[in-house]
Design a binder for these strands. Structure first.
Lengths: 188, 188, 188, 188
DNA sequence: GATGAATGAGGCTTCATTCAT
DNA sequence: AATGAATGAAGCCTCATTCAT
């Protein structure tokens, strides 16, 4: 099977999967996703060999988008705290402004269908974040723990903070800063 | 009087569900769970009206067990930091010593099948932890954030730390303390 | 298995079956019937070897009761038309006053579970009605058709008339007489 | 364009349902019907959303066919008695020549699965018969009873007569005329 | 005998994937 | 390549009947 031609269709499927999974979880039927994409039942399988393939791709796309949002435009000329704060703000902005993406990502993160390889790749996308973290903690109390540990902590902190912002958007900025300060106290 | 409903069997089903879901996720077939419990296909449904019922029950049991582990034997006569540390240690001990329970709980936590009511009940089980947290942060930098936020942070910190201990058991104690110190820096 | 002792229980089951089947059709679960009878699940099967046995017994009981209602107190000293009218009135009275019995009988009449033998036996219960019919049509236009045909016609006439009485009870007497007159015109 | 939904297959399923239900009643398993239709288990559900849908469709089809048989080619230029007789003959011809259809229709008529709407629609198909009946009874003894009552009587008369023809086909014509004469005496 | 738990064969329906058009 | 019908393996749950207590 050659590479299918229409990139549009491929993207439509990915986007439909995003919306559908946000609403129904990863158990959403491929037929439903296809219909949401305006594409036939069977076409889905010319673009993605398998439902798992689609899920993994979606996972990687979302992770990449999230990483890009977090890392884009980092003010390299400023202090570490400012850079980390910048990243934090953009990460949370992304997460709170696309609740579907966040929700779907949360679903996929715990899905059995996502392969170890995908998780590996996704991990790599956060290299920039990791680097920033590495520098930030260099002289701090967590200078000796595995970096991966720190990264995981950052991730769940961001996630939890996002939850609270979504639940109580009136105090978005307040929660955001509280979360960041907690993070900074932890590592620096 | 007829054969009484056997508590053993009930527990066997719960335990089989635990093991099976740890391995296959909440999508595990009831038939598989039944067989793992050494019970007939239909018997499962005399003990649990529905698959969802079983899942919710399992969720509540695990939560209760976790809360009990975390809160049992709290040294009320010691300082807050000591008490919180005590809780932290016992919580992580429980989580690292029953990886299946932890894994299953993680699965259920994000499952669509768990009702709001169950989550509510589970939340109530953590009241003791919440109280401890409340006192610990009373004069600290997070004295103004919603307690629920703090509780959530504690929970994901514990979870993440557990992950690292399981992945690298040789340094269990080290990770455990690193996690606790991070927590304490955050809140106190 | 010896003859079980409690006739009460046997009757309770029969009566529960009557009510339950009226409401849910012959597909009603034996467990439901047992519970309605205030009897255990398994007891039902010490009184009736099989669900089919129960259904057939119920069928026969209802048929017998209906026949008895129709034939009881027949004024043997009066004319044929009067006797047939008497029977007609009592038949319809019975049918309209116990809608559950009628409904259940209708269900059983078309059930696959009722054996040919039961139908035979039930047929025999209508011998009195048949005799009356035989005499009534003796010199009429239907003197040559099989008696069974006539009996069947009488039966469906009565049934249909009952339907209309139940649907429009305000004109019960009117429908009843219209039905009888139609019958009489047909046969005499 | 994909393989179009095959009318053949649809009809095969309907026909298999007809045969299977005639033999086993409306409790017949969808799997059995599918196999009888030479179709996969799941295909049945691409043609009929639900077992109930299939049953209702079958009911309507049979009713329509029966009505068409009864009303087709009505000699409008002849007297009422002749027209009614014509209808009677054709109705009975249809019923006796397709015993399966008749049997299945009888089963469906009393099934819980047939919706009120289907019954309504089916009722409408008999409008032609109703009209004929209306005219026939206009000056007769039943001129005052509800037309629906008459229609019901006609229906059970036809049904009962069919039974006897099937049971004793040697005297088909005889039974047929006896039935018709009884009907005519009743209404005209 | 009475009870109700235990059994396991189906029943209906969904769904990922394949295949004819 | 696109379509959507076809497939059949599960999945959850029901239920008549049996059996331990």
């Amino acid at each position: 099977m050659a590479r299918p031609r229409s990139d549009n269709k491929r993207l439509a499927i990915l986007s439909a999967a995003l919306r559908t999974i946000a609403a129904q979880g990863p158990g959403a039927a491929t037929a439903v996703i296809a219909k949401a994409a305006g594409v036939s039942n069977g076409s889905l399988f010319t673009y993605f060999e398998t439902k798992a393939t689609l899920l993994n791709q979606l996972y990687l796309d979302l992770k990449a988008e999230m990483a890009a949002a977090a890392l884009g435009g980092l003010p390299a000329d400023q202090g570490l705290r400012e850079q980390l704060h910048f990243m934090w703000v953009h990460w949370l902005d992304w997460a709170t402004s696309c609740p579907d993406k966040r929700r779907t990502l949360a679903h996929l993160e715990v899905s059995e269908e996502i392969t170890a390889e995908s998780r590996e790749t996704a991990h790599g996308m956060m290299a920039g974040v990791a680097r920033l973290l590495e520098q930030s903690r260099e002289h701090g109390p967590m200078r000796a723990v595995p970096l991966a540990f720190l990264l995981a902590l950052l991730s769940v902190l961001a996630d939890t903070t996002t939850d609270f912002i979504i639940r109580d958007p009136a105090n978005a900025e307040h929660h955001r800063e509280a979360g960041f300060n907690a993070l900074w106290r932890m590592i620096a």
